[in-house]
Amino acid sequence: MSAEDAAARIAAKPEHGEAGAPTIFDAVRRRLNGEFDVDPWGFDHELADMAVAATALRWSVDVLGGARIPQEGPALLVVNRRIGISEPAVVNQGIRRVTGRTARVVGMPDIPIASSWLRRVGAVMSDPAEIAGLLRAGELVMVPLGWQPLHGSIAGELRSAAVQPAIEAGTPVLPVATFGSELGRSWRIMIGEPVLPPKRASKTGAVEFAEAVRAGVQTLLDNPR
């Protein structure tokens, strides 16, 4: 989604817009009247649109395998990261461009005021209950792998607790590899084949499944296109 598209979407939010050509003033009026949607996890779609408009000015994102992301319904995306500042926003920019959806980014700290702002743009805590609830609600959920600040081509650690909700919900998990640097402008993201969860949610099965997903990300990192 380009910055212009995102700005148009902010102004033209259909359920609240009035007849006639919507303007940015309609968006401002809706916010002043409190007529905007915040979901039970604190996500504000309009604010996220504004964030996408801003990130589209900062980064250029090339997406490979975008058709693997479902247009609707739940999916868990497991993403590699180096430092982890840019990756969530970059991946979300790519996802928004190919599906129009926003993935909820797992791993937010629960800090007063700051966490409220982060929730508004789609962040959630690293709590299996939050991940499970979002998957039940049919959302895309993005789980970052462990930090790899020095070795960007190595997929970091993935805790089995993070994929356990996907096993319980029978939701496919998509490995995602990111290529780029914090200060660079161009990023590329590759979305791999879905990894299907085991039918039984045993502890050993969850560990093996997490390792299979991590290996899926590593395969993408080893074979950049």
Binding site: P40, W41, G42, D110, R119, V124, M125, D127, A129, E130, A132, G133
Partner: peptide, 12 residues
């Protein structure tokens, strides 16, 4: 509590 799930279900 700090760190508790925002949207708990009955198993929480």
């Amino acid at each position: 509590h700090r760190g508790s799930a925002m949207c708990p279900d009955e198993s929480s």
